[in-house]
Each structure stands twice: as C-alpha cells, then as structure tokens.
C-alpha cells in the first residue's frame, strides 16, 4: 500500500507544562514496495512518526493515508484493527511487546487475534521461531525468562507471524549479536522482496541504511531534514553532521585514506567489497 503523510504534526501532552512538539510539518510519500531507512539522532522523532502509521498515536494536525485507509487530526475514533492486521511494527523495546505466558502463545497471539485458526497460528509460530534463529525449546519458555537478544527475536517472530504488508522496524537489531544482526537483516530484506512488502527501517546503523534502503529519510528536530537515495545522502557529510549523524564506515575510511594519500574515490555502493575494489585500482595503475 502507498503511504501518504501530509503536514503531520504531533504534540505530546498538549496543554501541560511538559507539552512537546515532537513532529513538525512532516509530508512524505512512500510508495508500495519501497525499502525506506529512517535515520536521525535520539529524540529526532523517528519512533513518534512510525507510531502514527498504525494509529497508535493520533496526529495533532495533518493527515495520513495508508492505502485506502485515511485519517486526519480531529477525526472521530476510527477502527484501526483492519489496518493493524496489515501493518506490523517491531517496537524499539521488545519487552514492551511481549506479554503471554509462553513464547509460542506470544507469537500465536497476533494471527489468532486477526482470525487465524489455532492450528494455523501454531504452525506459524513454529515456522517463525526457526526463521528468527531461536532454538525450538524456547517455545514453552516464558518470554521474560529469555536473554535480551532472544526476547527481541520473539518480538520479531510475533510480528512476522501476522504476515503484514507493511513492515515497520524500530531499531530491530539493537541487542542482537553480530551474526544474528546480519541474519535478521537478510531475513527482512528477503521477506521484503519475496512478499513484496513495504518496509520502514529505523536504524542507527549507517551501514544497514546504505546496504538495504532504496531511499533514506533523515529526521532532525522533528522535521524531515534530508531525503534521497543512499548515494545522495552519504555524499553530504557536512549536512549529516548538522543532524549529529555519521557516514558509513566505508566512507569514513575513504576520508582517512584521502587525508593520508591525497587519493580520491567515489563509491556507488557502500560495501567493503566495492571499497576494496576502488582502493585496489591504485595498485593496478588504474585511477592514481
């Protein structure tokens, strides 16, 4: 589904001494099938923005359309359930998302809540547990007796079990071990393509943003500060610095190399492999 956000504004605790304008004048189009990375320092409004996309937060002004479902500030209470079936969110803090007695029941909850049979839900739970790299035995454990990284995998499994069309991931790999991080990101990426999802990834990893995203949106002080394809975004190091962000490690390395050697290279892809190719050309007498 296409996502349309128009002049969205969000105020927390309006009218109280703690009132805070967390989002200002956000207008954004995300077309179906896009893999979008949302980056920005803490407090820039990323989590506030994504919580609007399944109606967990209501706009203070402005409007949102998710496919055929549209709503605006001041609208009467809407039934968000049909939308929540299609929009899966993995929240920033997984323990806030878990609540059942066992891991299996926790993963089954979503599908059953949206009308799947118990047999089907059980089936999916089993499939998802292995998909996110958890050992089978955890299915009867309490999700609260798991390690931090295991809890996060359960939260991810629960969202994937609903087979959403739109997948929203709020820093989904924080707390995962490095190989788990790579595996889970590959899993999201493959699901994105195989199931033709629309994916929004909130991340602090510039490497992941560069590697997986079709488009990047940079948030700063509650506004959309930059928007573009990875190559455009990571060419503007100065502007990123204003938003307290870094460039990917590959770009950082190129800058160090340039400072030492005077050699310049442009990267179209930000992988280690393409960086190695670019640098190696100096040894083959290509570029230098």
């Amino acid at each position: 589904m296409d996502i349309k956000i128009r002049q969205l504004e969000h105020r927390y605790m309006p009218g109280s001494p703690y009132e805070r304008l967390a989002l200002k004048d956000i207008s954004l189009d995300i077309s179906e099938g896009t893999f979008l990375a949302l980056i920005g320092h803490t407090g820039s409004g990323k989590s506030t923005l994504i919580q609007h996309l399944n109606g967990l937060l209501k706009p203070s002004s402005g409007s949102i359309a998710m496919g055929d479902t549209a709503w605006a500030a001041g609208d009467k209470k809407m039934d968000m359930k049909p939308l929540r079936k299609k929009v899966g969110i993995v929240f920033q803090y997984p323990e806030h998302q878990l609540f059942e007695e066992t891991v299996e029941k926790d993963i089954m909850f979503g599908p059953m809540n949206f009308g799947e049979s118990e047999t089907e839900a059980k089936e999916r739970a089993k499939e998802m547990i292995s998909l996110v790299g958890l050992p089978e035995e955890v299915s009867d454990k309490s999700p609260f007796d798991l390690s931090g990284g295991q809890m996060r995998r359960v939260a991810i499994a629960g969202v994937l079990a609903m087979k959403p069309d739109v997948l929203i991931l709020d820093e989904p790999t924080a707390g995962l071990d490095p190989s788990g991080r790579n595996e889970i990101m590959e899993l999201f990426y493959n699901l994105h393509h195989d199931r033709k999802l629309t994916t929004i990834l909130v991340t602090h990893s510039m490497e992941d943003a560069a590697k997986y995203a079709d488009e990047i949106v940079v948030m700063h002080q509650g506004k959309v500060f930059m928007k573009g394809v990875p190559a455009e975004i990571f060419q503007q190091e100065e502007k990123l610095k204003q938003a307290s962000l870094d460039v990917p490690e590959t770009v950082e390395f190129l800058h160090k190399w340039q400072a030492a050697s005077g050699e310049r290279h442009e990267l179209s892809e930000f992988t280690v492999a393409s960086l190695a190719k670019a640098l190696a050309s100096e040894w083959k007498g290509g570029v230098s």
Binding site: G40, H41, Y93, A174, S244, L245, D246
Partner: peptide, 8 residues
Amino acid sequence: TSMLDPMG
C-alpha cells in the same frame, strides 16, 4: 549503550 544513537 546498545539503545543509544552513535553520538550518545
């Protein structure tokens, strides 16, 4: 620090 942005 795992929940923090790179600056934090």
